[in-house]
Design a binder for these strands. Structure first.
Length: 652
DNA sequence: AGCACGCCGACT
DNA sequence: GTCGGCGTGCTC
């Protein structure tokens, strides 16, 4: 009699044993369906054997999902690591890592035309980084961080490294933050690698994902480009993991297990002897610190590809948030000049919608979301919209608190400023790129085409405009209000804003004409803007590192966040108090550990759920993980849920 | 997770 | 007397 030991995709620790019915082919590495209590669930087969289980009667497997294995022991080991680290079951980690499709589908339309491979030649600086990566990798130093200014051509270096690795018969995983915006990266990789390339991200159907997974697993396709979950793709022999824009927050998963693809890649690199090459123009404070400590080898690209100059950056004071204040004299002047010369401009306003608040001029009441603890945003077309839960309602004619009709739309988002720009700059050809305009699937392509053909004078958008675009005719970048997000109660806020401003500044002056960046702010004294004006990421890093050290934040500690969310606030408060008590008890006397809270999360209510949290700062994670497991096991759920976040990206 | 079991409070 | 809220335990 044959039996299979399997993992299930639920928060249940350990393996389950099922009987394999006669005639059913079950081997390790396939998925099967089997009864669990009163349900039929998908299971992941880890082992097949003929030892009769002791102490229970094994039920029969119902069916096999796969004919051939789609994973092996290395993925199980990796998922055990993820489960231990981020506190989930191994089965949950496997369920998250593996594609969920049932029948592989190759019906994936490649949006790019076939083209002949272009061989880019590396300039001296790129060549020296390439050689130094290959060289030190030969000596066992496999982890690298490329710190290259925007436009320095990191992608060319990645591509040459990938070619080298594929030439040795090994495979390459290329991680990007978000697939839609990195389509330019995808297109370039496709030009070079053609049918050897697969994509892997959530916009594919489950069956397309399965098909691509299988092609990479078999070694039929040697390079994969995709979002964070691609870090789990298996290959016969993995030779290289590239993490482009390594500082980006989207490498952090936001449901259980809340892994960080950077850390998982680091682990795989060590286990599978694969090179890890991370790159950014604005590396995360943590990665730069680790490079300084010798964990990664640091490589610099200081010159821009093609020899163009870094743009000049000018910080300009503005005097209010009304749309007419958002176009300072210098910005108008330079933009007008650029347009007259046939050039283009990019404006960043990191706030979508028309205005962030609707406030009563008489009683001061603000329209708030009934489900979330935030204000409703005014959107064009007469609607109010919650940016967290999507709740929407018509803009009222009168204040719902006092009946006054003096409702004011306070602050400015992209929709509001779009009109002002058209009128005041007499530039009718403004293209708006934000979540609202990008919901149409081909917006990015449309934009690329229009920008290239010179049909756009000004590209206005949220942070979407800062990422990855390579337009050669842009000579002016305007940041309309740099202060947005500056005062969020979050320890990474400065880092995020600095990176964003630096990235958007890098969008201009990529062609032959020099670029100019205008940063508008309500507070030109902000330290961050001084460093920005000098393109001084290094200086910002030192400054921010000192602040982190003073407050004991990463990289000088690890953080754990335990958050209880639920519909009934009294209950949530009681439960988080219990969690905090357990953590304090279990961690008392552990040096270098502090339990903060409990307190209301800054976003104290989202989608009808109240949120309270406890933050733990620690030098050593093992005792904290042990304590978290105790708190989790003692947590009486009911209609509340305990979120466990190891190394949270933000504390909102 | 999801579901069954079993234990105490206010009701047709 | 019972319906049902919720804490507890288990799932091969």
């Amino acid at each position: 009699m044959q039996y299979a030991d399997v993992y299930v995709g639920y928060p249940i620790d350990g393996l389950f044993t099922y009987r394999i019915p006669d005639g059913l082919r079950v081997v390790p590495g396939i998925r099967v369906t089997a009864p669990l209590r009163s349900r039929t669930v998908t299971c992941f087969v880890a082992r097949v054997h003929d030892d009769e289980p002791d102490g229970f009667k094994a039920k029969d497997i119902i069916s096999a999902v796969d004919e051939e294995p789609i994973f092996d022991q290395r993925l199980i080991d990796l998922c055990v690591y993820v489960a231990d680290n981020y506190i989930s079951s191994t089965g949950e980690a496997l369920a998250m890592a593996l594609p969920s499709g049932r029948s592989p589908s190759k019906r994936f339309k490649n949006p790019f035309p076939e083209s002949t491979p272009k061989s880019a030649t590396l300039n001296d600086e790129q060549k020296s980084v390439y050689e130094s990566v290959i060289d030190s990798s030969g000596k066992g130093g496999l982890m690298h961080l490329i710190f290259g200014v925007t436009g320095s051509g990191k992608t060319e270096v990645y591509i040459e490294l990938a070619k080298q690795v594929i030439g040795q018969g090994r495979s390459v995983i290329f991680l990007v933050p978000e697939i839609s915006l990195s389509s330019q990266v995808f297109e370039r990789l496709h030009n070079v690698f053609g049918g050897d390339l697969i994509v892997y991200h959530s916009r594919l159907t489950a069956n397309q994902r399965l098909y691509n997974w299988m092609r990479f697993y078999s070694g039929d396709a040697k390079i994969a480009v995709g979002t964070r979950s691609s870090v789990f793709l298996q290959a016969p022999s993995l030779g290289l993991i590239v993490i482009d824009e390594e500082h980006d927050g989207s490498y952090k998963e936001n449901s259980t297990p809340r892994y960080n693809a950077r850390r998982v890649a680091f682990r795989r690199s060590g286990e599978e002897k694969a090179m890890l090459v991370m790159g950014s123009a604005t590396p995360s404070i943590e990665s730069l610190y680790m490079a300084e400590r010798g964990v990664f080898r640091l490589h610099s690209l200081k010159g821009r590809y093609g020899g163009s100059e870094m743009p000049s950056i000018e910080v300009v004071r503005v005097w209010g948030r009304r749309p007419e204040n958002m176009l300072s004299a210098p910005l108008r002047l330079y933009t007008r000049k650029a347009i007259d010369e046939g050039r283009q401009a990019i404006f960043l306003l990191n706030r979508r919608g028309f205005a962030p608040f609707l406030i009563c001029g008489d009683c001061g009441a603000v329209e708030e979301c009934p489900n979330c603890s935030i204000s409703l945003n005014v959107h064009s077309g007469g609607s109010l919209l919650c940016h967290y839960c999507g709740y929407t309602r018509k803009t009222p004619d009168a204040c719902r608190a006092c009946g006054s009709e003096k409702l004011e739309r306070v602050g400015s988002g992209t929709q509001r400023v779009e009109e002002t720009i058209r009128e005041e700059l007499m530039a009718p050809r403004v293209f708006r790129l934000d979540q609202d305009s990008a919901s149409r699937k081909d917006t990015a392509y449309e934009l690329l085409k229009k920008m290239k053909e010179g049909e756009v004078d000004i590209l206005l958008g949220t942070q979407m405009v800062a990422k990855g675009f390579d337009f050669h005719n842009v000579t002016v970048v305007g940041v309309l209000l740099a202060d947005i997000g500056m005062n969020l109660p979050d320890f990474r806020a400065s880092e995020r804003i600095f990176a964003l401003l630096m990235q958007v500044a890098g969008r201009c002056g990529r062609g032959s004409a020099p670029g100019r960046v205008i940063i508008q702010t309500l507070n030109e004294e902000h330290a961050l803007l001084r460093f920005l004006g000098r393109h001084d990421y290094e200086g910002f890093y030192r400054h921010e590192l000192a602040a982190r050290k003073a407050l004991g934040y990463p990289p000088f500690s690890r953080l754990v966040r335990l958050l209880v969310r639920g519909k009934r606030e009294e209950r949530v408060e009681k439960q988080i108090a219990e969690v905090a008590a357990v953590m304090r008890r279990e961690l008392s006397g552990v040096p270098g550990t502090a339990v903060l809270g409990p307190s209301k999360a800054p976003l104290s209510k989202i989608g009808g759920n109240f949120r309270h949290h406890v933050i733990i700062k620690a030098r050593e994670m093992d005792p904290v993980r042990r304590a978290v497991r105790i708190a989790r096991d003692g947590f009486a759920g009911g209609d509340s849920y305990l979120e466990i976040d190891i190394d949270p990206f933000d504390l909102m």
